[in-house]
């Protein structure tokens, strides 16, 4: 029953009660990303304030529990941190997802996002977990342009 381990309580909680969901103003950049193989999609806005601090990440989208919970966790982890700090999280999360379950997650960097470690064992679902994070990375790059 390996999939049960993918559906961690924390992931299900975020799926049922998403944090920070809904598109808000003001924002510096807005992006729309889709996962064509399963139709998951997300629209994400990022507002970066003085000193490179992420003031708000707002989003809307549809998809499976993994993709939607990932966006909710991302909101919690990024808001209030600096862009630089959040990009380190993006990098570590991407590394974990692409590991096929072969590496130990760095909880100090990832915080709640370690709950997604089980997803890495399901290649078909890795894209679901990464959708919001790739959108975030894209939005941040555009917001600083």
């Amino acid at each position: 029953m390996i999939a049960e381990s993918m559906y961690q309580e924390l992931i299900l909680e975020h799926y049922k009660h998403p944090q920070g969901r809904g598109l808000r103003d003001p924002y510096d950049a807005e992006v729309h990303h889709v996962n064509p193989t399963c139709g998951d999609e997300i629209t994400m806005r990022v507002k970066v304030g003085d000193g490179g601090k992420v003031e708000d990440v707002s989003y809307d989208g549809q998809g499976c529990s993994i993709s939607q919970a990932a966006a909710s966790v991302l909101y919690e982890l990024t808001t209030g941190s600096t862009v630089e700090e959040t990009l380190a999280v993006v990098e570590e999360f991407t590394r974990l997802m692409q590991s096929r379950g072969q590496i130990e997650a760095d909880e100090d960097v990832l915080g709640d996002a370690v709950a997604f470690a089980g997803v890495a064992k399901f290649p078909a679902r890795v894209k679901c977990a990464l959708l919001a994070w790739m959108a975030y990375k894209d939005a941040v790059v555009r917001s600083t342009e």
Binding site: M1, I2, A3, E4, M6, Y7, T37, C38, G39, G63, C64, S65, I66, F122, R125, C128
Partner: peptide, 26 residues
């Protein structure tokens, strides 16, 4: 409940193989 979650749990807990998605009929 999204079909991808349905399909994953059906397969993993019960060995039930179904198809999930838009089945090439978007």
């Amino acid at each position: 409940i999204h079909p991808h979650d349905v399909g994953q749990i059906l397969d993993d807990n019960f060995g039930v193989a179904v198809r999930v998605g838009h089945h090439c009929a978007r």
